[in-house]
Amino acid sequence: MKSILTLTVNGRRREDLVPDNLLLLDYLREQLGLTGTKQGCDGGECGACTVLVDDQPRLACSTLAVQMQGRRVETIEGLAKGGRMSRLQQAFHEKLGTQCGFCTPGMIMAAEALLRRNPHPSREEIKAALAGNLCRCTGYVKIIESVEAASG
């Protein structure tokens, strides 16, 4: 079964024919080629697939593409403007918030959602906002410092 999906992805309005049982993750990665969104645990436990839906963080691995009808979806690819990284991306780069990089798109999208809601979060608020995202390299300290640098 397929349906017509109308939505906005990274600021561009799209209309696609998608299978009803297609996950948002596979729609982004396979159908649109936006492979910045990562497939990690497949159970909603790691946060690597975090994208923004109407400014809220959302797990693309446990969301159906057709549920995004009329919604505004943003992925890591949408943050850079005119070939320049966003302030948050730049901060992750400069403060070494990235090591292997696999969790980074999810981390940045979860932090982006926080900063849109609360541009000057405390350390505790940053930790709470990133609670659903696992990183196996950094020990989180550099990630929190990166978000702090972007919010200062």
């Binding site: 909603g44 959302r58 797990l59 446990s62 979860a110 709470a128 609670a131 659903g132 995202n133």
Partner: peptide, 9 residues
């Protein structure tokens, strides 16, 4: 319940 990303959905 779970993490912030779950609670948003």
């Amino acid at each position: 319940v779970a993490g912030p990303t779950h609670r948003a959905a």
